[in-house]
Amino acid sequence: MVAYIIRRVIVGLLMLVAMSFIVFALFMKNPVDPAQFSCGRNCPPERIEETRQALGYDQPLMVQWSSFLKGVVVGREYPADEKMREANPELVTECAAPCLGFSQQLQMTVNEEIAEAAPISISIALVAVVIWVIFGVLFGVLAAVFKGTLVDRGVVGATLSLYAFPTFFVGALLINFVAIKWGLFPAPGYVPIAEGGVGQWLLQLLLPGFTLAAVYMAGYVRMTRAFVLESMSEDYIRTARSKGVKGGKVLFKHALRAALTPLVTMFGLDFAAVLGGAIITEEVFNYYGLGKLAVTANETFDLPTIVGLVLLLGALVIVANIIVDILYAFIDPRVRVA
């Protein structure tokens, strides 16, 4: 098992290296000059040149890429050009490993940007995940148990219509009615735990969390329903029943455990995606998380931030996959030996 994880981590790291190269190559072969963007709109040509040097864009692609990789491993200093660092020691920014780059636009390292935005995204994602997993699985099991009845149709129908509404619409609806008009919740705004405590933090996250969860919940209800129904028709369920095991225990000990395996796979990937991809939700509620950071970076052609985010999110997906595989082994003993 340990060897298996090590193998997976090595493969994952190789994938990340490849990913970083692809992102670099795509942006460098882009018709738009990244230095000009970094420099700003009314930038004189010599300033552009300076920026280019500061970010190392004057170097060949391979050199840039390898110094980026070096930065990730051991850290580096900005500006990239050594002469510029010597000339203006006051401008030198230390970027410790794993250094993901330096954003000229925001005048801070990508690591700092991420450090600011990540807690917000993680908070929203956590709350959303808890909501959608609990209710998704619960309603899914309910629909499966009452298959074909009004309960089944009601649950599936309700979650599906929730899914059908676009996220921005649900979000806007919640802000305008629940928060502003009825005043049931405070107006949205992120409050870190350190400032407002867990209660305040949670309260501020319920609305965006629910908005995000609404999309995923429908999928989980349907999947849970399908998987539970499938495992309820397995031979081992008949065996359990013929032993005289009580209905509830048949459902939860025998059927649900088997249905969990595919759910865990889905969950791992969804969670990784939600961490970086809750763009619309963050936009609607104006929470400065990773999603919003990515949108802004794209708009301003902030290459270092984009590369950093791509790698971070890629790493998240890879880590999530490895965790899913480990969870698999816990759930399914047949996987353990292999």
């Binding site: 031979d235 081992y236 065996t239 013929s242 209905g247 088997a258 399914d332």
Partner: peptide, 25 residues
């Protein structure tokens, strides 16, 4: 009937691989 199943009447099935739960010993 549930109490009688497995106590008064018991059943064994054709394919013991699928008739046993793969996740429990």
């Amino acid at each position: 009937m549930r109490k009688r199943r497995g106590r008064d009447v018991a059943m064994i099935f054709q394919d013991p691989l699928s008739a046993m739960h793969p996740y429990y010993t």
